[in-house]
Design a protein around this nucleic acid. Structure first.
Length: 270
DNA sequence: GCGACAG
DNA sequence: ATCTTGTCGC
């Protein structure tokens, strides 16, 4: 009669019956913001040509990607409501930090899977806004976010949320898989086995046939993949490319630096 | 019914 | 997210 699998998926992701009033508001906000989401390349810069690669012809774009941002939050171990949000900007070529700012805040909103943005985005947007207001010359041309973009139950994770509200190209990077559309860790293992060659980029295609992102083995030495997905105004291909080009270790350098510096500032504070 | 569930 | 020591390797 009816397909159990379809029903289960649809109910888990779209039902409002078992949501709190607060969460119903959040669902509406995510749905509304999602209408502004752009999942293709939409920016004026281009990637610096790789070494040993010829310049593409017809690329009449003069602006190179130079300023890549990264954002992350760290939490106090004593008081889990105290957090430090950090924004860093790196030179895309040298991976040197050219800008750093952070803010210690008290969070009143709990972490709920699927609603991470309502907890973490406000601090990070404020850090971005401060930079923009000052017309800072190092304002990022692309932002990497510690959290998913499209790889999210409703296709609108933290990276999309920040991207739309800041009107900035963003890439989502998850260190753990958020199970969506039949994509589980065991499913990812199956995809890896099925790859004809030992690919280090695995497309994450769910039961529905939709591509939610990609799992990549970002550096030799760590078997555990990271999960890349489109945030805003960036294609999946560009998202993967930029992450690969900024990975000195498992996590791309902009996010890693934001993580290190937010944690450091939290320790030195009290 | 139980488990899973970004950070 | 956070709790945690040493250890192996470039």
């Amino acid at each position: 009669m009816n397909d159990d699998k379809e029903a289960t998926f649809s109910e888990r992701n779209c039902s409002t019956e078992f949501q709190s009033p607060q969460q119903m508001d959040w669902l509406r906000i995510q749905d509304s913001l999602k209408r502004q989401l752009i999942t293709e390349d939409d920016f004026k810069w281009r990637l610096p040509p790789k070494i040993n690669e010829r310049e593409k012809e017809g690329s009449n774009c003069e602006i190179l990607l130079k300023y890549v941002g990264g954002v992350d939050l760290s939490f106090s171990k004593e008081d889990s409501s105290i957090a430090c949000g950090a924004l860093v900007v790196l030179d895309f070529q040298t991976l040197k930090v050219v800008y750093e700012d952070s803010s210690i805040v008290r969070l009143h909103i709990p972490y709920l899977p699927g609603f991470l943005a309502f907890r973490e985005a406000p601090v990070l947007l404020e850090l971005l806004d401060k930079m923009k207001k000052n017309a800072h010359p190092f304002y990022p041309q692309l932002l990497m976010v510690d959290g998913n973009g499209l790889l999210h139950p409703r296709g609108f994770g933290l990276a999309c949320h920040i991207g739309v509200l800041a009107d900035l190209p963003t890439v989502g990077v998850g260190k753990n898989l958020h199970h969506v559309d039949g994509l589980t860790q065991s499913r990812v293992r199956e995809i890896r086995q099925a790859a004809d060659s030992p690919e280090n980029v695995l497309p994450l295609i769910g039961d529905s046939g939709c591509t939610w992102g990609a799992a990549i083995q970002s550096s030799q030495g760590s078997l555990k993949p990271i999960f890349i997905s489109v945030g805003h105004r960036v294609s999946l291909a560009t998202a993967i490319e930029t992450v690969k080009m900024t990975c000195r270790f498992r996590v791309p350098e902009p996010i890693r630096q934001a993580d290190i510096r937010s944690r450091e500032r939290l320790r030195n504070h009290q």
